[in-house]
Simulated scan of single mutants.
Amino acid sequence: MRKDVIEAQIVLGKGNVKRELGDFIRRNAWKKIFLVAGKSFSGLAIGKEFAELEQELSLTVERFSAFSVNPEFSEAVAGSKVFRSFSPDVIFAVGGGSAMDTAKAIKLFSSLEEEELLLKPWKDNGIPLLAIPTTAGTGSECTPFSVLYKGGEKLSIEDESIYPLIRVEDARSLEFLPLYQKKVTLLDALSHAMESIWSRASEGDNLYYGKEAIDGILRHADAYLENDPRSWNPISDAATLAGKAIAITKTTGGHALSYKLGSLFSLPHGLATAIVNKELYPLLTENEERVHDPEKLVYLAHCFGVKTAQEGAKRYKAFLEKVDVLPKEKSFYEERLREKSPDVQSLEEAVEILAKSVNLERLQNHPMSLSEEELKQIYRRILMLEG
């Protein structure tokens, strides 16, 4: 995605969020709002202020909350039917990646017949999308991507028409984000920044966005995890910058290998990407002769405050250990598999399923080609079947 499109996004919330949002609604004469938000929205500061605006501006609001943590294709289709029936002036997406992905898909699907939903090129329905992130990690408020699941398999959607036209910055919601969610979404943002830098498509603006994102995360992570209010805006900004970086380059192996891992073991997306990148980063530094542009690994190391690619991988590992959220024992995966995927009999069988699930075409953006046998070795290390 081009930088000029990314930077054309209208940003609200630098001052008084309620006043700026209310003024923007008035100027655009919006009266019917389709709101995609989770069940916790009403208890947040932005939720309470939106309820006040609803009364003060005599707005008609249709709220859609029927989506999963990993949104299903069928949920977005159902939402698009409600959207079409309601015929709104604007769509508001409020929440983390789940709400954003669902809202984007609803916007895209609402102008299509059911048999056309997955056919390209898609048509823009012309309804503006306004994003209000309440977590700091996915960066979905700054990307043209939506990820859904259909039959247990990842379904990727990309179209400039679902890039949010307006973004509202409101870091107040981070105060109430549980510590575990703070950790896994922070790791998601870090994965975006890292993968953008080492991507085969990495060149120019994404390097700046990625570097600034990593710098913000490293500087403010400790305070953020201690819920220091002074960290909320810098961490939110870092997540947005990481989203901009990945919007330019798209994701790499860290994401391609994480989707089935996340669904099979029911892991949060940010945690799954960190688990994968913990293995991929040192693998890249140990095989620099196979890496598309080894200098990008040196650049990434500099972002981590060290000189060599190998030191960069060690610094990333140390950061993961400090955040302290990755599984430490093989028994974690064994228990999770029995609970979440009882049809899979063993971790060895899981390795076979995981390796075959990776779309090799999607790995083309990764800086180093990976064979199916290498994928199996990576998954065996992840599941602690070998050192």
Rank of each mutant, 00 (worst) to 15 (best):
166 I>K: 04
166 I>P: 03
167 R>G: 03
167 R>L: 15
167 R>P: 01
167 R>K: 13
168 V>H: 05
169 E>T: 04
169 E>L: 08
169 E>G: 02
169 E>D: 07
170 D>A: 11
170 D>R: 03
170 D>E: 13
171 A>L: 07
171 A>N: 09
171 A>R: 02
171 A>S: 14
171 A>W: 13
171 A>M: 09
171 A>C: 12
171 A>H: 15
171 A>P: 15
172 R>K: 12
172 R>D: 13
173 S>M: 10
174 L>E: 08
174 L>N: 07
175 E>K: 15
175 E>R: 15
175 E>H: 13
176 F>C: 12
176 F>A: 14
176 F>I: 10
176 F>W: 11
177 L>Q: 04
177 L>E: 02
177 L>W: 05
177 L>P: 02
178 P>K: 00
178 P>D: 03
178 P>W: 00
178 P>L: 02
179 L>I: 06
179 L>T: 10
180 Y>H: 01
180 Y>M: 01
181 Q>R: 00
181 Q>I: 00
181 Q>T: 02
182 K>L: 09
182 K>Q: 12
183 K>D: 05
183 K>Y: 08
183 K>E: 06
183 K>Q: 10
184 V>F: 06
184 V>I: 14
184 V>P: 00
184 V>M: 03
185 T>F: 09
185 T>Q: 12
185 T>L: 08
186 L>W: 07
186 L>H: 07
186 L>V: 11
186 L>K: 06
186 L>Y: 10
187 L>C: 13
187 L>H: 09
187 L>N: 06
187 L>A: 09
187 L>G: 06
188 D>E: 10
188 D>W: 02
188 D>Y: 05
189 A>S: 13
190 L>R: 01
190 L>D: 03
190 L>A: 03
190 L>F: 08
191 S>R: 02
191 S>A: 15
192 H>F: 06
192 H>T: 02
192 H>N: 07
193 A>F: 03
193 A>W: 01
193 A>C: 10
193 A>L: 04
194 M>R: 03
194 M>P: 02
194 M>G: 00
194 M>E: 03
195 E>L: 08
195 E>G: 12
195 E>S: 11
195 E>N: 12
196 S>C: 14
196 S>A: 15
196 S>H: 14
196 S>W: 13
197 I>C: 13
197 I>M: 15
197 I>Q: 14
198 W>I: 09
198 W>H: 15
198 W>R: 09
198 W>L: 10
198 W>E: 06
199 S>Q: 13
199 S>K: 14
